[in-house]
Simulated assay, not measured.
Amino acid sequence: MGIRYYAYAFDHGLRDRARDDPRSLIASDPLADAWGLVPHATVSHATFEQTVPQRDMLYLDKAWREPQLLTGPWRLEGTARPAFAMFEGEVAMRDLGWEAWIATCA
């Protein structure tokens, strides 16, 4: 297991809702969405086809750090590209797991 990165698209009309409560627009089991699993099943067969349309979800798995580097500031005093808003943030590791980093951008 490791840290996984998911990006969900939402309609412009849902922007305020996404900012106020991002979890309301994120699936409760993103890995199931990405791999074609039955959500929350302890045993399931993966189809490896996203259940969410590809235009609505980006699954990068372990590659999330690379988009951060490509879109982030080049130097300490530099500015990030606008796309960095989709990749900024860090997951916080704790003693018994991790704390998700969730944000929305429009």
Rank of each mutant, 00 (worst) to 15 (best):
A80F: 04
Q54D: 13
P53D: 06
P39W: 02
D20P: 00
A80V: 03
R23Q: 02
S28R: 11
W98Q: 14
L37M: 05
L76A: 11
S44A: 10
A92S: 12
R81C: 08
P30D: 04
F84E: 08
Y59F: 14
A41P: 07
D95N: 15
D61E: 14
E99W: 05
V91L: 07
E99L: 11
K62Q: 15
Q54L: 12
L60P: 04
A46M: 01
F87N: 00
G72V: 00
S44D: 07
D61R: 11
L70G: 05
I26Y: 01
H40E: 11
A27T: 09
L96Q: 15
S28G: 12
K62T: 15
M86P: 07
D95F: 13
A63V: 11
L70V: 06
E49K: 12
R75V: 11
L69W: 07
Q50K: 09
L58M: 11
M57R: 07
A32Q: 00
L76M: 10
R94C: 14
A32V: 00
L31N: 06
P73M: 09
L69Q: 09
A63I: 10
M93W: 09
S24Q: 00
L69E: 09
F84Q: 08
I26A: 03
V43Q: 15
D33L: 05
A80S: 07
Q50F: 05
D33T: 03
P30W: 02
F48C: 08
E90S: 11
E66W: 12
P30M: 05
W74V: 15
S44V: 02
R65K: 13
G36Y: 01
D29M: 01
L31D: 08
W35Y: 13
G97M: 07
M93K: 11
R94N: 09
F87L: 03
R65I: 13
D29K: 00
A83S: 08
P82N: 06
S28L: 09
R23W: 01
L60I: 05
P53N: 05
G72T: 01
L60W: 07
R81G: 05
G89P: 05
G72N: 01
F87M: 02
G78F: 03
G89K: 04
V38K: 10
L76I: 09
P82Y: 04
S44R: 05
M57Q: 07
F87R: 01
A27H: 06
D33M: 02
R65W: 14
Q54W: 11
A83C: 06
E88R: 14
V43P: 06
I26C: 01
V91R: 04
A63S: 14
K62M: 15
D56C: 09
A27K: 02
T71N: 01
Q68V: 00
Q50R: 12
L58N: 07
P82I: 03
M93N: 09
D95Y: 13
V91T: 10
R65N: 08
T51C: 03
D56R: 10
M93H: 11
S28D: 12
L76S: 13
R75H: 12
V38S: 06
D33W: 02
